[in-house]
């Protein structure tokens, strides 16, 4: 698979949304270690609403699929994760020319724009124990490979490996934001819940591609 059509994007995001609703307790548990344990509740709510929105529409524009997911999450979730994970899909899909299909390069650009906007909104950098710990190395790895003649399966594998390594590295950090901030050194040893969720999203995308 080297291109993603609007219909495929819809099918993929429906699969991802359903998988994320399913992963609610995993995300809550990740948050319970060093936060307040509600991360999975919000994520399941947001992806559940996105699932419904996607099902109600037919898409001819790939970006409109990601836009719908992102905007619905921002509107329905609340919490820090509503803005942050909504922006993951929203930043790269707003104010762009419609496209009936996109390639690896455009797919990478969506995450690149998300990284820029999430960092700007949250004032976070790598090492602050946020989703940026997973997202920045993921985007770097994707950009390095985006010009190559590779498939969606390969780019998502690269993305997942980098996001997972970033999530693992977040264990050693003291949190600078969110409720985990209050823990100081007590947060060391646990990954950031947001970077755990990022790996779940990318993993679900890869699982969908593998099924095609």
């Amino acid at each position: 698979m080297k291109t993603l059509t609007a219909a495929q994007a819809k099918s993929m995001m429906i699969f991802v949304s359903a998988a994320m609703v399913e992963a609610k307790e995993i995300m809550c548990e990740a948050d319970r270690n060093i936060g307040d344990g509600d991360h999975g509740i919000g994520m399941a709510k947001g992806f559940g609403a996105a699932l419904q929105e996607l099902g109600n529409q037919d898409f001819t524009d790939v970006y409109k699929v990601f836009f719908t997911v992102g905007r619905t999450m921002i509107k329905e979730m609340g919490g820090a994760s509503g803005i942050i994970f909504g922006t993951l899909f929203f930043a790269g899909s707003k104010n762009v020319e419609p496209a009936t299909e996109i390639g690896i390069k455009e797919f990478t650009t969506i995450f690149e724009k998300a990284l820029v906007e999430i960092k700007a909104k949250g004032h976070a950098s790598v090492g602050d124990k946020t989703v940026v710990d997973g997202l920045e190395p993921m985007v770097d790895a994707m950009k390095k490979n985006a010009e190559k003649d590779i498939s969606f399966e390969e780019i998502l594998k690269i993305a997942l490996d980098a996001a997972t390594a970033g999530m693992e590295s977040s264990k050693q950090f003291v949190a600078k934001f969110g409720r985990a901030k209050t823990l100081g050194e007590r947060a060391i040893g646990y990954p950031d819940a947001g970077s755990v969720s990022l790996t779940l999203i990318i993993k679900a995308m890869l699982d969908w591609v593998n099924k095609q």
């Binding site: 509600d38 919000g42 509107k75 329905e76 979730m77 609340g78 919490g79 820090a80 509503g82």
Partner: peptide, 12 residues
């Protein structure tokens, strides 16, 4: 008002 212990959304 948002969900339990979670901020309301911007639209709200």
């Amino acid at each position: 008002q948002g969900n339990v212990f979670a901020s309301p959304s911007p639209d709200n």
